[in-house]
Design a binder for these strands. Structure first.
Lengths: 347, 347
DNA sequence: CTGAAAGCGCTTACAG
DNA sequence: CTGAAAGCGCTTACAG
């Protein structure tokens, strides 16, 4: 049953460069050159080749074409989670940038674990990607040694470890957080709850330190209260709920990652606490639902497009061997103090 | 400057199967067989090969390994937009499923345009993917002929055209919508606003028809008012705002895609309209922010994991040639009538 | 049980 | 301007 000689349908019989060559009466080498616009060829041959290509519907196999080169025209991208819209937006940006430069993007996710991150990076290296863009799960980046060893162009994005030997691009987390807290302090807030995720993430540390620095400069380090909220929505809900049920109320909450913002909105609403009357709220990362509420929630906005462009530009420089040493780019965030921020209620 | 003979660092010199063979004193063919666990080999040779692999840190080049086969162990996935969390979740699911079956997932996006969709599908076919999973931009799927011609295993997902010649997997949009409207009608609603996106999307048609069918069965087709909301948040905001500013108020709104839900929440809030007192609200697609509000917003929940698993299972059947004809899977949605739904206020 | 040879679809020196 | 040959890193018949 299975071995019917007639089952041809399943076979893809795409034309090869040899088919084109035969039809155009030239050698495969010539076809290859003409198709890549390299060297010169007799006009009539060029014409015949183009015609054969059209008639046959020939398209080069990009993977085979890359086989003789040390690297393929592929850039690997590792994101922690496809579900996060910020990363989704970055994937979309890189996809476009890659296409514009003749590269193919292969995006994979680490599921926020070091093990998957390792495995994914290894798999990408197996593919002989020309470059690697990594949003690390945390500062560890356990595959760093392997990457360095193979000399693959690499740019770290967003969660950039302090002393990375790789090129890196991130936002100015410290400055953005500091600016938020400064604004809150100016409005009169003296008890600010900082909702953080895992401090093993370098960006989280910077955000926290930025906030602290302002309090310390004001000689009132105690005005910042830190609440560790885990890394996802369930843990954030639990942490925020627990905190709101006990202890004195802060006058403002600054959530350093978006699940905490979501958790805070939900728990405040559940308790009938009004924003900004009872409490001011600012969230790191702008997401569309921040404006579902009334008033809309103030946010630290990451410049997604700029992050992607900066990263890609550096990647291209690396691939063209124009870059030396490791470069570290820090781009500023934009702050939008929407209606969720106001002076604390007079007590 | 550039052509220093000493610049070896840039060259990746990964060991090849020949290096392993030499070190283990066997032929490359034998290494290949042992590594794939095919055929049999002398135990001592197996041991020496494994040792050489370990010492050299050899890993097969999966692309080169696939070169002699008609197809590569790659599944291409085309999603309309990486920014949509529903699609993000699907990408994540497929990534895992692919890994479990020894395939590699290459996910690309069509940016909701037919042109990009075409180009992406062609590029994927150039890669000689073994299979293609496509969430079409709309019902057109302009590359259908090419795909069929090449005989690549294909499964359409989510936005499934009515008479697709391909395998397909989608939710029961009709039934889910009908159930929502039935529930609203039972509660006493007689004027329901249906916020739709582009009707060129097959799933959107089904959702609308499902809603209509209930009204018609009740002999009151007029109770459904349809509002076209474009395809994204800005257009939805405009459409919803415009509608709320004029005409008699519906007693319930059923938004058929999530940007419309977001837009509705925002515009209702802006006008100080209370949910569910002034208006009931149900949204198609569950997203985490539906529970930021109080009360939380009722939703039609798509079974993401089940969709992915069903799709993948069919894909594997195709690749194993176990499937004949085209199969169409329809999986039910789950409804969660949260606090945003109540009987209409007595007038 | 094993290896030499040919091949996958291209590109790359190298002659001519 | 062009083509024969070798090669990229593997796998696949085919002998032995």
């Amino acid at each position: 049953m299975t071995s019917k000689g007639a089952s041809i349908a399943a076979t893809q019989d795409r034309p090869t460069i040899h088919d084109v060559a035969r039809r155009a009466n030239v050698s495969p080498a010539t076809v290859s050159k003409v198709l890549r616009g390299i060297g010169s060829a007799k006009p009539e041959n060029i014409a015949r080749i183009r015609e054969a290509v059209r008639e046959l519907g020939f398209r080069v196999d990009p993977l085979a074409a890359n086989l003789r080169k040390a690297q393929r025209a592929i850039i690997g991208l590792v994101v922690p989670d496809f579900r996060n819209p910020l990363f989704g937006a970055l994937v979309a940006e890189f996809e476009q940038l890659a296409a514009a430069d003749g590269y193919r993007l292969v995006a994979v996710s680490s599921a926020e674990t070091n093990e998957r991150e390792e495995a994914q990076i290894e798999a990408l290296l197996d593919w002989r990607v020309a470059g690697l863009i990594v949003i690390p799960t945390d500062g560890a980046l356990t595959k760093a040694a392997t990457i360095m060893e193979q000399g693959v162009a690499t740019v770290l994005l967003d969660r950039v470890p302090a002393n990375s030997p790789f090129d890196s691009v991130g936002v100015d987390n410290f400055a953005a957080s500091a600016a938020v807290v400064r604004h809150l302090v100016e409005l009169g807030h003296r008890h600010i709850l900082l909702a953080t995720s895992s401090l093993s993430r370098p960006n989280m540390q910077d955000r926290m330190h930025g906030a602290m620095s302002v309090a310390e400069a004001a000689g009132a380090a105690g005005m910042i209260e830190v609440l560790a909220c885990g890394v996802d929505l369930p843990s954030a809900l639990q942490a925020v709920a627990g905190r709101l049920d006990a202890g004195t109320m802060p006058t403002a909450i600054f959530t350093l990652f978006s699940p905490a913002t979501l958790a805070t909105l939900r728990e405040l609403g559940r308790r009938g606490l009004a924003i900004p009357e009872d409490l001011s709220l600012v969230g790191f990362d702008d997401v569309e639902w921040l404006q579902v509420t009334h008033p809309p929630v103030a946010a630290v906005i990451q410049p997604v497009t700029e992050l992607a462009h900066t990263t890609w530009a550096q990647m291209m420089r690396r691939l063209r061997k124009e870059a030396e040493g490791d470069a570290h780019f820090v781009v500023p965030c934009r702050l939008d103090f929407r209606g969720s921020v106001a002076p604390p209620r007079a007590r």
